[in-house]
Design a protein around this nucleic acid. Structure first.
Lengths: 290, 290
DNA sequence: GCGTTTTGTGACGATCCGAGTCAACTACCG
DNA sequence: CGGTAGTTGACTCGGATCGTCACAAAACGC
């Protein structure tokens, strides 16, 4: 990927950090040359000459470039190291302010929070991992985790594995169903006390080729909390998860049944437990392939 | 209901972090209540009800809120702590990527950099302090620093004072002209070996009341490097500095003469040194306004 | 069961900001 | 003195966002 230095990447990032197109382009151009005039910048950055001045003016007020008020003017970017450090500090301050101000105005609601009584959905790999970690943390007896590993995304980050091990250490039984060799080995190595089963859950993977979504992770904690994430390969957002921490809802029933195929080797009796519940048919019977 | 004026601050910050107006408002509203429906959010956040859905949808893809797909839908913000951490991580990644990509494409220029041969201007307190610190660091013999302290802005941050002391430790003579009592004392306490003079430089402060700019700091290093910053009280950007690290230009001459009033007590002879130079005028006399 | 209210989805116009172009003004050079 | 290059400001255009509305679907009350 080092074929053609994609100089559009830093521009993109700088835009995300709040710079305008011209500002970002001009700055990147300036980092590629010891110093430059408006004309040179215009040529390197593909920015209209007459707009370079505005852009650089802004950049200067940010402290990212130095300006020489000669004729013609000459511009110079501060070292990359310095620039990144500058921006980082700036945003760090914002994060601090954000937390303060958010915590300051938070109290408004008076109703007690009725935590976990239904099914929620969460987006974003980070947030989902966070939720999964919380679930694992709260486990008292049993954890069942099925992963569709062996791909690009990192569904088993350090902290999640750490929490899994912590769970085993405190006596929680951990079952892991791995759908790929890599995940299988990795989990086994990191979490010694785990019970790994190569489940018969291959059907979790795309059943119809056309579908652009596939299962990411499936987590069942203490037979009451369930998290199921899907990953859309489309251009839209990445991982989305539905989860619940309350027992007795449809999702839990489904989750149990999904896991039953792999679990009944380990604990056959539990299968019976919700077989009764399943027999009268959930309305949630989505995706029941023929 | 009750609109506290300060709840607009987190919204502002969130916008700076890339969220849209409605997204920011909705999120802040959600942090103020354990959970809420679209209607409630609409009322708290002053966002059109029908647009709450779009906003929350985005927030969910960011991982900042959880969505309950019931009827009516219910929304819930992740804890503030978590949200800030999430955003912080996200931006940290961007900074890393930025640095990598910037350093990857940097080499383009072929002309050797002719460092410091003229007058530059820099914007932003951070960047200016950075530049000043570099100057102090490079000092070998003498440092002259005049501060207009006694105000809101922090023109003498820790690191600058530290560098000043380091300079004295390595044998550099440091003169400090303090225009206010507070600055005077602070510098004296932090930098033991310093020569402090209460200069006759009061004229550095606004001479005409209408002017909205005043001198921030004036730094002269080794009789060759000069940094002069002004602070505009206006609505525009804050501190701006002009500086040069080359001897013999007009700014240096001016800077020396400016300091002469305070310095000739300490070293009267130097005043004569550039009196001759100033008389016949430099060719670099750019910006010779008036 | 039926009508009303609330909720969710989509579309539409208004508005704002940034991108891009142009022309005029100023400073430098021959 | 005229030509060239540099610099600034004003202008148009387009896309994104804001704000409103209309309508279908679902829930609720009688």
């Amino acid at each position: 990927m080092s074929k053609e230095p994609n100089q559009s990447e830093p521009i993109e990032i700088l835009r995300e950090l709040g710079l305008k197109e011209y500002e970002a382009r001009s700055f990147v151009a300036l980092t590629r040359v010891p110093q430059g005039s408006a004309k040179e910048i215009s040529e390197i950055a593909a920015v209209p000459r007459t707009r370079v001045y505005d852009a650089v003016d802004q950049l200067q007020s940010y402290g990212l470039v130095d300006v020489q008020h000669s004729t013609p003017q000459r511009f110079r970017a501060i070292p990359v190291e310095e620039a990144v450090a500058l921006l980082r500090r700036e945003f760090d301050d914002r994060f601090d302010s954000l937390r303060e101000s958010l915590e300051a105005v938070e109290p408004v609601g008076d109703e007690a929070l009725e935590s976990g009584a239904n099914v929620w959905t969460t987006g974003g790999e980070e947030a989902i991992t966070s939720r999964a970690t919380q679930f694992v943390d709260s486990a008292e007896e049993e954890i069942v985790l099925v992963l569709d590993g062996g791909d690009d995304t990192e569904l088993t980050p350090e902290r999640l594995l750490d929490q899994l091990r912590a769970a085993t250490d405190r006596g929680v039984t951990v079952y892991v169903g791995a759908l790929s060799e890599g995940t299988y080995e990795e989990v086994r190595a990191r979490v010694p006390g785990v019970e790994v089963f190569e489940s018969e859950l291959e059907w979790l993977q795309p059943q119809t080729e056309k579908e652009s979504e596939r299962i990411g992770r499936l987590l069942l904690v203490d037979r009451g909390k369930v998290l199921l994430s899907s990953i859309s390969s489309g251009s839209s957002n990445g991982e989305t998860a539905i989860w619940s921490d309350s027992v007795g809802n449809g999702l839990t029933i489904i989750g149990r049944r999904l896991l039953a195929a792999g679990l009944d080797r380990e604990a056959e009796n539990l299968d019976n437990a919700e077989r009764g519940a399943g027999s009268h048919g959930e309305t949630e019977g989505e995706n029941r392939d023929g």
